[in-house]
């Protein structure tokens, strides 16, 4: 999993080199601006902007497609319902079901926004290592408890995941087949075991932490240095966001 996430995070494109804090703020503001769009005429704009940014990011298309595969299933569910349920103007009939115009437009709106926002999110977190993203958030003011919890949870996530796989393999080797509901209590014990092990490990980890000074006033050197170009890019994105929102307000 980790490999997947940080796989293209070490490339050398301008988006990769963009100061993480500026990137975080700029992209999130743009994402929210896109989420505000309702007018149909702006839909192709946001789609094109997201697509262009993705190309500029140097991330491969295969990466985007693999990340969009599962969420697209959700969209399918919506696609099946909205055109038939929403609106009055009937476009055409499929048997007893009437495909309505408003429903189709709603679907279009949701689909475009969904894909644009997800693409921007993938750019944001795909062009820097996850660890850097969390540190950038800390640099932007995330409370130390949340930052610490995120970092430690991230550190042990994969290990605990591996433990789970090992336990599942061990169960399978002893004949457990996860096919019927009768295995329910075994799964509950599995979950319980994961919790207990993590709990016990956290005790030892805590001891290791205090031995190396956790709880002392710690110094954090300024981890990020924003260059002028980073701030310029941030302002660019903020302006773009403002333009989108204003246009939306004027059109609608």
């Amino acid at each position: 999993m980790q490999l997947q996430l940080d796989r293209y995070a070490y490339l050398e494109t301008p988006l990769h080199r963009w100061d993480p804090r500026c990137k975080l703020v700029g992209m999130m503001v743009l994402i929210f601006a896109f989420s505000y769009v309702r007018d149909l005429r702006l839909l192709p704009v946001i789609l094109v902007v997201s697509g262009a940014m993705y190309v500029y990011s140097g991330l491969p298309l295969s990466f985007l497609l693999s990340r969009l595969r599962l969420p697209a299933l959700f969209l399918l569910a919506v696609a099946v319902i909205l055109p038939f349920a929403s609106g009055q103007t009937v476009l055409f009939q499929i048997g007893p079901l009437a495909v309505k115009e408003e429903g189709c437009l709603d679907l279009l709106r949701i689909a475009v926004k969904f894909f644009s926002i997800l693409t921007l999110g993938i750019i944001l977190f795909g062009t820097m290592p996850f660890l850097t993203a969390v540190k950038a958030m800390r640099g932007l003011g995330l409370p130390y408890i949340l930052a610490d919890m995120t970092l430690f949870a991230y550190r042990y996530l994969f290990e605990i995941g591996d433990d789970l796989k090992a336990m599942q393999t061990a169960m399978r080797l002893r004949g457990f087949r996860n096919k019927k509901l009768s295995g329910f209590s075994t799964l509950a014990s599995l979950a319980g075991t994961i919790l207990v092990r993590s709990f016990e490990q956290s005790d030892r980890v805590f001891k290791a932490m205090i031995l190396r000074g956790y709880g002392q006033p710690a110094s954090f050197k300024d981890e990020f240095q924003a260059r002028t170009i980073d701030v310029v890019a941030l302002l660019l994105l903020l302006s773009a966001a403002a333009v989108v929102v204003t246009t939306e307000l004027l059109l609608y």
Binding site: A153, Y154, Y156, I160, D163, L164, F206
Partner: peptide, 18 residues
């Protein structure tokens, strides 16, 4: 904090169980 952090990870992993 270490306890909550590890349990956060543990719960996330537990939610992956089919």
């Amino acid at each position: 904090i270490p306890r909550a952090s590890l349990l956060t990870a543990a719960f996330l992993v537990a939610s992956w169980v089919h």
